[in-house]
Amino acid sequence: MTTTNTTRPLDINSPYSEMAVTPAFDIPPQARSPVSANVSTTAPRNDQMTALGHDRPYLPVGLPVPLPTHTEAQPLFTALQKWQGTVSQVTDSTFSAVLLDLLEPSVEEVAEFDLEEVSRGDLDLIAPGAVFYWSIGYRTEPSGERSRSSVLVFRRLPAWSEKDLQRATDNAKELRNNFGW
């Protein structure tokens, strides 16, 4: 695996960080929601960096962009491919997932990953049904050095609330009434 081990963590407040992580294609509407915003607003600690790369390429779009205060350059991630994955099976050392190609959503694939590919901070999120994004692209350092990079980021979706469950219960009740069930 081609990786880059920078000693400088990403500066989320950098004026260039959004530019540095903008994918080469549109992010689907749900991924732009506040739900995914919760996922991406914290830069990874060094101990959360994966063996494959450590960019956070899914910064929420639509958040206020701070005005430039300095011009320190950041690595640029250019995504070539991006999937949304849903974990289907977990073993002691691997997990399998169904992948939806976000460049061509009719294409579904299945992959098996080593758990080692996942950041330590995300390991507790891996369970059947967990949703993640996987992107492959080029990471370009400010020095111009370029390397291939693979990044797995699990979505930290908000927990189900009392209100969510009540809404679903009400919707279900309305449907059953409508159908005479």
Binding site: E109, V110, F113
Partner: peptide, 12 residues
């Protein structure tokens, strides 16, 4: 990169 990052990768 797919080959390097996965144990198995197939189209469904």
């Amino acid at each position: 990169t797919i080959k390097e990052a996965t144990r198995r990768f197939e189209r469904l």
